[in-house]
Design a protein around this nucleic acid. Sequence first.
DNA 1: GAGTGGTCTAGACCACTTC
DNA 2: AAGTGGTCTAGACCACTCC
Lengths: 253, 253
Amino acid sequence: MGTTQLESVPEPKYWHLRTVLSEALDSEFSVGEILPNERELAARFGVARATLRQALEQLELEGRLQRRRGVGTTVAPPRVGVAVGTEQHAWPGAAGDAWQPLDSVRATPPAAVAAALETGADEAVHTVRRSRTSHGQQVATELLYVPAASVPGLTAIDAPSGAARARAVLRELQHLSLDGEDRAVELGSARADDAKELDRLPGSPVLVVTTRFFAQGRTTALSVATYRADTCRLTFGDSTGVEIHHDPERRAS
Amino acid sequence: MGTTQLESVPEPKYWHLRTVLSEALDSEFSVGEILPNERELAARFGVARATLRQALEQLELEGRLQRRRGVGTTVAPPRVGVAVGTEQHAWPGAAGDAWQPLDSVRATPPAAVAAALETGADEAVHTVRRSRTSHGQQVATELLYVPAASVPGLTAIDAPSGAARARAVLRELQHLSLDGEDRAVELGSARADDAKELDRLPGSPVLVVTTRFFAQGRTTALSVATYRADTCRLTFGDSTGVEIHHDPERRAS
DNA sequence: GAGTGGTCTAGACCACTTC
DNA sequence: AAGTGGTCTAGACCACTCC
């Protein structure tokens, strides 16, 4: 009666470890504090380092820990609420949005993007790179695809390259009247370049937000934004205040 | 020239493997097809099984593969678009929503939930469990927390337990006029019970959608929904049609 | 019982940061 | 140079599904 779980369903060691560590983080550590190194922790719990690492990986995925090669493992601060789509129906680059234009090129987009934009498979589109910072840390990168047909006023002479060109594309977009937009969120893994920019390893989990912008009866622009999944909580709607920590194995009973 | 990457920045084996396998999936396999088993694949690529598994884990995270113990590894269908918050401003349980009520109890919620609901730490609230199915597969579980004060019309005698009680709580909610709602999406890992219901292993990645419902000037209900991250793409807005496959290492150039 | 993916071990070496 | 996390190996055994 006293035991909630009989021997019959032994939970994996790494899962149990995760729970023990999670509780220790709650009670014995404070944000920013450095944990003992992996070899030490493994020895202390009497498990192989790989098993310990499996537990740490879980906790990192949940945003509880931050690990940096050459440095150590620290207790992560609570996730940052990042507003996505508060300003309903505004073009990217509208006054006061959270993004910083980096550069822009004309290039052939991936096939899936071309399909969504209903452009020809080999048709070049303006590709604007932007980045987003929150609380002094870079939290997201974005690729914004804009078919040439969407910004007819843009001439190559306006701004040959770099951030100026990116701003020029965004500026042209504002001239159109936005009919609506459409968002999807899914889990992905960071490409090598995104990972580098977000200060993560390639393959680390990211939240991919795909937004379609509609005007003139078609998809006028398409944004693919990549958010760090470990540090970000994406918020939709008016407030950014929800602070529900999703703690596995803890529930009302 | 033929080599894109010089020796100077050797990418990890598992990452390279992931890329190779990903391309093989595109060209040589079709949805539902079974891959060779892990020992065989590892031998074929000349790596340890653990390394191969790291690559497979990536691909599973990206929704490209599906692995089932005792069965094998199969090529996953494209992610399902799951609408989250199309019907702006509707109570959970409103006519035609996608959720199936399972049961309901009165219980003390986790501290974080109590804080969001602004109830006392030890105050019991109605806790409704619901599940969501899409394309014949269970894609999400939900815990809906409703303070007793939000449903004053509900009496214990109405429906003692089970799905009937869950429906009774939802029915009472509809009587209030909903002022607004508020959403957040973050990455989490499945609790043991959620994992079981979603047919996943504990700790597998999930998208946690937290929704606050406002009425009468306060948070009247709070929903914590847990979606399978491997199979779901959460959609916001009018259409569910976006089909952008986020393919790491592939980009316009 | 055979075959699959899941867990775990005890090592080795590498890449990176810091001093 | 020392210390950290990241990668990789070659095995073992377990839990599960299916026949």
